[in-house]
């Protein structure tokens, strides 16, 4: 078990959490956007994570057990848009309702905290790994 493998797994997890954070940031930034290139209001994006083999080909049991993380795809939340009554809005329909993005700001904030904590956990794991390596170098001192 090489220490660089552990660092690789940690690095991939950090990248994945960064990607999730980016997606949540985009959702929050576009929480009130009614016009998009595809037409209609902005749709909430969700990052889907997938685990990947650390190494291709044969390897020990531990190597098979260790998986790196990657962002498999970014999907759109297909739930219906939030209808807000605002007849003065240029996007309002005949009944005076505007289709707003299906982004729930409060749940996005909660997700933001979860992602931040997950990131912190990975940094802690990385630090622990590094400390272990440095302790190993102190053998025989």
């Amino acid at each position: 078990m090489d220490i660089s493998d552990t660092l690789k797994v940690c690095g991939s997890a950090l990248s994945a959490q960064r990607a999730r954070m980016d997606v949540i940031t985009s959702n929050l930034a576009n929480a009130d956007v009614t016009r998009t290139a595809e037409g209609g209001p902005y749709r909430k994006k969700i990052a889907v994570l997938a685990s990947e083999k650390l190494k291709e080909g044969f390897g020990g049991t531990l190597q098979d057990a260790m998986k790196t993380v990657k962002v498999a795809e970014i999907v759109e939340d297909m739930s219906p848009p939030r209808m807000v009554h605002d007849p003065a809005h240029p996007e309002a329909n005949a009944n005076g309702y505007v289709a707003m993005p299906n982004v729930n700001v409060i749940s996005e904030m909660a997700d933001l905290i979860v992602v931040g904590r997950a990131y912190e956990a990975m940094v802690t794991a990385l630090d622990a790994t590094k400390n272990m390596a440095i302790k190993t170098l102190e053998i025989g001192k």
């Binding site: 660092l7 690095g11 960064r18 990385l126 440095i134 170098l137």
Partner: peptide
């Protein structure tokens, strides 16, 4: 370049140098 990958590379180099 991503910040955490740079930090990981620095840590790797640090451990290697210590060894």
């Amino acid at each position: 370049g991503s910040l955490h990958q740079a930090m990981i590379a620095l840590e790797k180099a640090d451990i290697s140098f210590r060894a």
